[in-house]
Design a binder for these strands. Structure first.
Length: 297
DNA sequence: TGAAAGTGCCAACTTAGTTG
DNA sequence: CAACTAAGTTGGCACTTTCA
């Protein structure tokens, strides 16, 4: 069964005849196995784009079609030339995390993921280099500031725009491992022993890729919390955007829980409550105190 | 006709380079 | 060495396409 037949069943079950699957991904269901075949372009694309967002599609399809799908294989071609090595590197980290998190998910390519454990030791994460622009005009920036202003009383600290760029040993353009720049955690907050991470989306931006983004941010912060990935030495002097408070909390092992929140008026029609439940149904995540939830704006 | 995927453009953001 | 400018990239937005 391929994309057209799968879409057909999804439409029946979800009672939504507008549901679609991205044509840049080949889905294939047979004998209880869903194969998600990603293109060269997809594995090098922004993680929130449909062609790249395998986490979201895997979780949505498995949650909607539990009788048809027991196992999910993420497949791509590791031998061809990759047009964007930074996105590709992040893609491989995402795959590595995904197959660790869910025992029903497997790497369906010939790429050997074992080396990642060693690699992580050399990674460092960048941190704010100035205050966030308080005047930024984008709708999302305005939503972000409003939410932070409204929620100040509910958290010990709440702030915006936390960088999550991965680098080798030092933070510089030459040593970057994954995309840096604009991919930042929209909003983060601390309350007692819990770090909250919010992925904010405007109501007209409803994409399955929101799952990929939030999972990536949560996994990176969890790897920092567990000291698998470090901040560089000069991070301890940074006081922008309340980073010093976060840094000290992480450093003194005060953070025991990480909660990722989808913060939006509405989600993609395939992201049902059952998808959030499946997202949380993981031994590793329970062991590592990771949890996801949907907060309706 | 309406909803969702796909596409191309541009504002905004980070870093690197330059200047006083 | 701070402040400014330039360059390059990301991701949002608005538009187009597709399909029931």
């Amino acid at each position: 069964m391929k994309n057209p037949e799968i879409v057909c069943i999804l439409r029946q079950i979800s009672q939504n005849t507008n549901v679609k699957l991205p044509e840049s991904i080949d889905f294939e269901v047979s004998d209880g196995i869903l194969r998600i075949n990603l293109s060269d372009k997809g594995v090098c694309a922004n993680m929130q784009s449909n062609e790249s967002a395998f986490e979201g599609w895997a979780l949505c399809l498995k949650a909607w079609l539990p009788d048809l799908i027991e196992k999910v294989l993420i497949c791509w071609n590791p031998t061809t030339h990759k047009s964007n090595l930074l996105h590709y590197e992040r893609f491989k980290y995402r795959i590595w995390k995904f197959i660790q998190t869910y025992d029903w998910a497997e790497n369906g390519s010939l790429f050997n993921m074992d080396y990642y454990g060693e690699n992580l030791k050399n990674w460092v994460i960048n941190f704010p280099c100035d205050e966030a622009d308080k005047e930024a005009q984008g709708d999302e920036a305005i939503l972000e500031r409003d939410y932070i202003a409204n929620q100040k009383g509910n958290y010990d600290i709440i702030d915006q725009q936390l960088p999550v760029g991965v680098f080798n040993n030092v933070v510089s353009k030459a040593s970057c491992v994954m995309p840096r720049g604009k991919s930042q955690i929209d909003i983060w907050a601390l309350r007692c022993d819990t770090l909250h991470i919010f992925e904010l989306k405007k109501s007209n931006n409803i994409m399955v890729g929101i799952i990929s983004e939030l999972m990536y941010y949560v996994n990176i912060m969890n790897d920092i919390k567990n000291q698998r990935i470090k901040y560089p030495p000069n991070a301890k002097e940074c006081e922008y955007r309340n980073f010093d408070i976060l840094y000290n909390s992480l450093n003194s092992n005060k953070i025991h829980f990480i909660k990722g929140h989808f913060l939006a008026e509405r989600l993609h029609p395939l992201i049902s409550p059952a998808v959030i439940t499946l997202l949380n149904d993981s031994h590793i995540q329970k062991m590592e105190n990771i949890e996801y939830s949907y907060i309706v704006l």
